[in-house]
């Protein structure tokens, strides 16, 4: 995984053209410096098509789900509404401080390492490595991020591969599906994405690639 540099770069460079507009009932000027003084300390949140966006989910996943749920209307640019008022606490996670985003990101990294390497890589990293990961991502510094992340994405010496693959499957409004998916199957055969889908959805025909559109994978 960590060796496919060109693919990693392509993924990193992926962008979603997005246009932002301020909710019509809030001050229509230019975002934070200009919103009403009493709202300036409020956390910002985004809405698409009447639904608040889950800030802790990967952006690409949110976009794919939005396209899926709106019959293809979410063609680029993706039009999001920006809000500073009436934070939808019932629908999305609280966002009490900017650190909440960083903590959420680091928790995902740790959880994934627990699945891949029983947490053995992340536990050998220092605070500065964690910071480098986060800042690399935040500042769009591919090399800075991957200098640390490659350690998390390599197999450990003596291991055939990851213990299991961290994967979440999103299906529209349904609950996220997360299980342990081993990389090696019976008779030591390397398992494929098809194997994973068959295990996750045993009652469905998963051989039709178009059906994949209905499920969004985050790996």
């Amino acid at each position: 995984m960590a060796d496919d540099r060109e693919i990693l770069r392509e993924l990193w460079d992926g962008r979603i053209p997005t246009s932002f507009s301020l909710a019509s009932n809030e001050v229509r000027k230019h975002f934070s410096k200009h919103v009403k003084v009493e709202h300036q300390e409020n956390p910002m949140w985004f809405e698409f098509d009447g639904t608040p966006l889950q800030w802790h989910r990967p952006l690409g996943v949110l976009y794919d789900l939005a396209v899926m749920n709106s019959d293809g209307e979410a063609r680029p640019p993706w039009s999001l509404v920006v809000h500073f008022d009436n934070y939808p606490h019932q629908e999305i996670l609280r966002l009490d401080s900017p650190q909440a985003v960083e903590m959420n990101f680091m928790s995902s990294i740790k959880e994934a390492d627990f699945i891949k390497h029983a947490g053995k890589i992340i536990s050998t990293m220092q605070k500065k490595d964690h910071l480098q990961l986060w800042q690399g991502l935040q500042n769009d510094k591919f090399d800075q991020f991957w200098a640390v992340n490659r350690r998390l994405m390599e197999r450990m010496s003596g291991e055939e591969g990851f213990k299991a693959i961290p994967v979440r499957i999103y299906r529209g409004d349904q609950m996220i599906l997360q299980k342990l998916y081993k990389t090696i199957g019976p008779e030591r055969k390397k398992r494929t994405l098809q194997d994973l889908l068959d295990e996750a959805f045993p009652d469905e025909d998963n051989s039709d690639a178009r059906k994949l559109d209905e499920k969004t994978l985050e790996v």
Binding site: Q54, K110, E111, G119, I176, L177, Q178, K179
Partner: peptide, 21 residues
């Protein structure tokens, strides 16, 4: 925290956490 290691996502379910950890 799960297994003295990481915080699960607040919208995670006990079943999935059990399946994985």
């Amino acid at each position: 925290y799960v297994n003295q290691a990481f915080s699960p996502s607040p919208d995670q379910t006990v079943r999935h956490l059990y399946d994985c950890f």
